[in-house]
Simulated assay, not measured.
Amino acid sequence: MGLTPVAPGMLAAVVTSLEMTTPPAADVAAKELSPLTLVRLESPTLDDYRALFRLVGADWLWFSRLVLDDAALDAIIGDPAVEIYAVRDAAGVNVGMLELDFREGATAELAFLGLASSLTGQGHGRWLMTRALALLWRPGVSRVWVHSCTLDHPAAIAFYRASGFTAFARALETFADPRLTGHLPRDAAPQVPIIA
């Protein structure tokens, strides 16, 4: 019990894993809340994927895919059991992403779900979650899970719980600050101070 120091140049986050073991009731109204579209990216280039990942995740210090070398990232996003979608606005501009991972058979992971911060609070997240759950709960899937951390949007865990997920595990993750390693710009996530 007590405080655990975090070394300069490092960050720490509490990661909460959540699961759903039965499909939620259909939420037709949420499908109609957004003028956005979801487009499957069959074979995204590494650069296109990383740009989409940064677009959504830089404000929340998403780093996990940015620190992978090309071969490791390609092994994930090139796997036929991993589905990547771009969320696009009416002009066809990417404004979000969805990544679904079916590599564990009956357990499907909502690996990444997010929108550009300019869309926060407009109901688009509910629309995107509804679409994600409809894609995840396919024949043969008996469990869907997701993880979030204390660096994500403050309402993320409440949003997942309102969507039907239940927390089942918590862990502490420490990692090098991606703004100091050059994986994200230094001005990313100004709400989290840099301690070099």
Rank of each mutant, 00 (worst) to 15 (best):
P44H: 05
S163W: 04
G2Y: 12
R138E: 08
M97R: 12
R54V: 05
E32Y: 12
E109Q: 12
K31S: 09
F165Y: 10
R88I: 07
G125Y: 03
T107A: 06
M1I: 10
W62Q: 02
T174G: 02
H124G: 02
S117H: 15
T150H: 10
G96E: 04
R88G: 04
W145Q: 10
K31C: 07
R131P: 06
F53M: 03
T181K: 06
M1V: 12
R88P: 05
E83F: 04
C149N: 15
E99P: 04
G2H: 10
L151Q: 10
M1W: 13
F165K: 10
A12M: 14
M97Y: 08
R186L: 14
C149F: 11
S17R: 15
A188N: 05
A162D: 14
T107V: 14
G57V: 02
I76A: 09
L55A: 04
P139C: 01
A26D: 15
A72S: 11
D69V: 06
R54D: 00
P190M: 06
M1E: 11
A106R: 14
L180D: 09
W137T: 04
G57H: 05
G57N: 02
H153Q: 13
D177C: 03
A176M: 09
L128C: 05
V14F: 14
L133G: 01
I157S: 04
A189V: 01
